Simulated scan of single mutants.
Amino acid sequence: MNGISGKIGRWVAILACGLAVVCSAPVSAERIKDLASVQGVRNNQLVGYGLVVGLDGTGDQTTQTPFTTQSIINMLAQLGTTLPTTQSLQLKNVAAVMVTANLPPFARIGQQIDVTVSSMGNAKSLRGGTLIMTPLKGADGMIYGQAQGNLMVGGAGASAGGSRAVVNHLLAGRIVAGATVEREVPTMLGQGPYIHYELGNTDFGTAQRMVEVINREMGFGTAQALDGRVVRVVAPEEPSARVAFMGRVENLDVRPMKTIAKVIVNPRTGSIVMNQMVTLDACAVAHGSLSVVVNTEQQVSQPNALSGGQTVRTQQSDIEIKQSGGALMQVRAGASLSDVVKAINALGAAPQDLLSILQAMKAAGALKADLEII
């Protein structure tokens, strides 16, 4: 145990020194375009329902997915082939899919965008399929694009003799430049003489520094912070002059304030992500476990030949209690969370134990960070 404690102490000392160097380094400057976005300039989500054909026997089982059969009948009716609605189609090469896409800002009619195709039914694979013409609608129900093309599926699979092997995911694919924009969404660059920049994260210090940089480079009074997230900028109203002005503004360098210390924990996967601002106060961490094992065996009691007794079955239970030796780890103030995670892992803590320890550190006030569980 002394050997483990010595190694833990050396890890804590080395990593704490490294953290001190990182924290003392100045925050690098970033462009305004990386810190903020122009208010009103945004993507719009599109969605559509369609069919993928040309599959090699890996499509939907139409007896279990009636919407696939109905879609095929409706599509053939539009193409001039009428089938009775009561007819049962046994098709294996067709799959019903949902098609999604992002309509970028300033998209023009005729521009091509990428689409993602995902299976809706019980198809086994979309590999080798072709999406037939599918209208893409926005939140208002209007058609903004038409999608069609051959799918690119990154996975692969094979089956034989009741066995099946799959690499990656076969029920979703992508079509590069698979949709054509049919309707434009008007995008306004500001309101009257103003343009509003929205920071990615609310930070009053960064907003003030952004105002100072813009006023220094573009003229005093050009920018004004409305709150910790929105900065209002006076811009020329003539379109070409406004575009040139925005091109200059978004490439200005701003040195942002330090980020908030945060720890993200995913208990399902046991993963922990933290930023460099996370520190700890002096604390002690103890880890131990108690396990109770109960084994029950069936035994037969056989009497002597002349005793006149009867043969009976009995149960014999063996109860064993195990308690591993707990270890107490001292953590110095200023040590980073990565030091503690490595040290606790060296003690044999499972991911769930580590999550409990972090929550206890937060409750004790030793963890100087926001703990977020996803």
Results as ranks from 00 to 15, higher is better:
314 T>V: 15
10 R>N: 11
301 S>W: 00
219 G>W: 07
342 K>N: 11
116 T>Y: 02
338 S>K: 12
273 V>S: 14
58 T>C: 04
302 Q>F: 03
310 Q>K: 13
103 L>S: 06
19 L>N: 10
160 A>M: 14
25 A>V: 03
38 V>A: 02
80 G>C: 06
104 P>G: 08
276 Q>H: 11
241 A>V: 03
83 L>S: 07
322 K>W: 03
67 F>T: 12
33 K>V: 07
320 E>G: 04
169 H>V: 14
68 T>Y: 02
335 A>G: 11
230 V>Q: 12
223 A>Y: 06
76 L>H: 08
174 R>P: 03
166 V>S: 09
92 K>T: 13
339 D>H: 07
156 A>L: 01
128 G>R: 10
324 S>Q: 13
360 A>V: 04
49 Y>T: 05
63 T>L: 05
139 A>P: 08
221 G>Y: 05
52 V>D: 06
316 Q>G: 07
15 L>R: 13
339 D>T: 15
329 M>C: 04
88 S>W: 00
246 M>H: 01
155 G>D: 08
208 Q>I: 03
149 G>N: 09
134 T>S: 11
84 P>I: 00
143 I>P: 01
59 G>T: 05
64 Q>F: 14
136 L>E: 04
57 G>E: 09
196 H>N: 06
254 V>G: 05
270 G>T: 08
302 Q>E: 11
81 T>I: 15
54 G>Y: 06
151 L>S: 05
243 V>R: 14
218 M>D: 01
295 N>F: 00
281 D>V: 00
307 S>E: 11
330 Q>D: 12
115 V>F: 04
243 V>D: 10
256 P>S: 11
152 M>S: 15
119 S>K: 09
111 Q>H: 10
121 G>S: 12
318 D>A: 07
4 I>Y: 10
48 G>H: 03
105 P>D: 05
87 Q>L: 15
112 Q>R: 15
308 G>I: 09
85 T>W: 02
182 E>F: 01
139 A>Q: 14
5 S>Q: 15
343 A>H: 03
260 I>W: 00
92 K>N: 14
139 A>C: 00
188 M>W: 04
332 R>K: 13
338 S>L: 13
8 I>R: 02
166 V>Y: 01
222 T>P: 07
256 P>W: 09
29 A>M: 07
184 E>G: 02
278 V>G: 03
306 L>S: 11
43 N>E: 14
36 A>F: 08
294 V>M: 06
142 M>H: 12
374 I>G: 02
16 A>I: 00
3 G>N: 14
297 E>P: 00
40 G>C: 06
64 Q>D: 14
266 N>P: 02
365 G>P: 09
246 M>Q: 09
313 R>N: 15
209 R>M: 04
350 A>C: 00
108 R>N: 13
98 M>Q: 08
263 V>W: 05
318 D>L: 08
210 M>T: 12
327 A>S: 14
146 Q>L: 15
284 A>M: 10
319 I>C: 02
370 D>K: 12
352 Q>H: 10
342 K>S: 11
103 L>H: 06
226 L>H: 01
108 R>E: 12
85 T>Y: 05
225 A>G: 06
47 V>L: 05
276 Q>D: 13
30 E>M: 12
116 T>M: 14
319 I>Q: 04
152 M>E: 13
12 V>S: 08
259 T>V: 13
261 A>D: 05
65 T>N: 12
115 V>M: 05
156 A>I: 02
262 K>S: 06
346 A>Q: 12
94 V>T: 09
